[in-house]
Amino acid sequence: MSQGEHRNPVESFLRMDRMPHIWCPGCGIGIVVNCFVRALLKSKIDVDSVSVVSGIGCTGRIAGYFKVDSFHTTHGRPIPFATGLKTARPDMNIVVLSGEGDLIAIGGNHFIHAARRNVDIKVICVNNFTYAMTGGQVGPTAPLHSIATTAPYGSHERPFNLPFLAESSGATYVARWTTYHVRQLTKAMVDVLNKPGFCFVEAIAPCPTIYQRRNRMGDGLEMMRFYREHSRIANGADTRSLDIEMGGEIVVGKFIDRDRPTYLEAMDEELSKRLGNRYVPYPTGVKR
């Protein structure tokens, strides 16, 4: 690169030798990556303290593109891998960036249990409503009646409402934004980077090639227009009211921001109470 040429500030966080990336034109995952980098910059967090963990799928590829310590795990397992990283290195900021098929279907059990025990990891879930990497099968958030390769006349299964699932499982922070809401999405990521406990951000993202094409929802730009016209910001909304229907309103916002002891803090507290001086507290300090 010649001197004086402008570089995108995002580039220094990415493995540019891996470019071009594999994501399709109009895909929302790149926007999420962009927001996350900007959140890292804004939060002034020590980047060397950040580790990105992702699973399998389109979003799973994020771990390979981030120029931080990253872990591209097996399908569905980024949360337990991240729990391992966090438990062995409580000083690190562990961020899971993965898709809804990975985190909520095959990895769903890990999701609810990590939230239940309040493991201090940040989970950013790109929700594009389908298993895009394998060609568009029906997934755990696919809206009722949406078309998928394994639901050729529309899904008849009830989808998960992710903020409700996260809240009821015990997450300390729950937000949902679309990739149209780049500032709010970035802000949510800054929030969670500074907040202890199991924090969850749902990033609703376009998938023009797989999900939208099959459901005749237009291209990436049209989906951004849809998000602009059909999203309603309702911070603090009851998460039970956040179901997503085909072509329906998408309620976005910050829904939950609460405090409770993290997994390691709870362990320290309980064992200190029981064992007194005999207990050596677990090092839990985080570089935030």
Binding site: H75, Y131, M133, T134, G135, Q137, T149, T150, A151, P152
Partner: peptide, 13 residues
Amino acid sequence: PITPQTHIVEHLS
């Protein structure tokens, strides 16, 4: 779904 098996079950569905 898992590559490269997926076409079988897609067609079956």
